[in-house]
């Protein structure tokens, strides 16, 4: 009879929590996969892209135009990519046991995330089309909107980690939440790079 007990892992492996978190991210990939699929199908079907010819007289009269603002979004993109670097620096700091360094880099990452969101909102307010203006508008607002919601979720995640960091809950040995947070933030960043490439560069 083996004694009932808790197995002590003899080799370093992902913790249960991290494994579960990575599986969660896999499901997120599939969620965005569905939305991207919708975009590409709409695009493949369209007579031209953006599908200007689908605009009704009423939409044209309202001044609807199907084009995107590249310069502002390019700056936002650079900031978001930068925030992936800064959150990784936060992870490296806590890996060396430097709690205040982690807090500072997290704070910078949060600021970059919030600025990204603010720029997205400004962009939304300026764009000459809405979510109801052809499938171009629908896919644009749905894809970027769900991404924006994930950025907001990531900012909240980072705030929680920041507060826990200020409370002294992390050390060089125990900082799984910081790593999970960085995984999530990198995921959000990679989705944005895919979105930016698809919507702005290929588009």
């Amino acid at each position: 009879m083996a004694a009932y007990g808790v197995a002590v892992p003899h080799k370093k492996q992902l913790s249960n929590g991290m494994l579960g978190f990575i599986l969660f991210l896999a499901s997120e990939v599939m969620f965005f996969g569905g939305l991207f699929a919708a975009y590409f199908i709409a695009r493949a079907d369209a007579p031209e892209w953006p599908p200007e010819s689908l605009l009704t007289a009423e939409q044209l009269a309202r001044g609807v135009e199907l084009h995107l603002e590249l310069p502002l979004t390019l700056i936002a993109t650079i900031l978001l990519v930068l925030s992936s670097v800064t959150i990784q620096l936060a992870v490296m700091q806590i890996g060396k046991g430097r709690r205040s360094g982690m807090v500072w880099w997290l704070f910078i990452s949060i600021v970059l995330g919030v600025v990204f969101l603010a720029m997205q909102m400004y962009d939304y307010s300026q764009l000459p089309f809405g979510s109801g203006d052809t499938v171009f508008g629908t896919t644009f607002y749905t894809l970027t909107g769900f991404h924006g919601a994930h950025v907001a979720g990531g900012v909240i995640f980072m705030l929680v980690v920041l507060v826990r960091g200020l409370g002294g809950q992390f050390s060089s040995e125990h900082h799984e939440a910081v790593e999970a947070c960085s995984f999530y933030w990198h995921f959000v960043d990679i989705v944005w790079i895919a979105l930016f490439t698809t919507l702005y560069i290929v588009g």
């Binding site: 499901s27 599939m30 996969g33 569905g34 919708a38 709409a42 109801g132 052809t134 749905t142």
Partner: peptide, 25 residues
Amino acid sequence: QLLATPVLASALAMLYIDRNFGGSF
């Protein structure tokens, strides 16, 4: 479930947007 259900969620999100926000998916 892990890999298929999120795609349903995306489909339902699209349907919801079509129904409530004038979407054209």
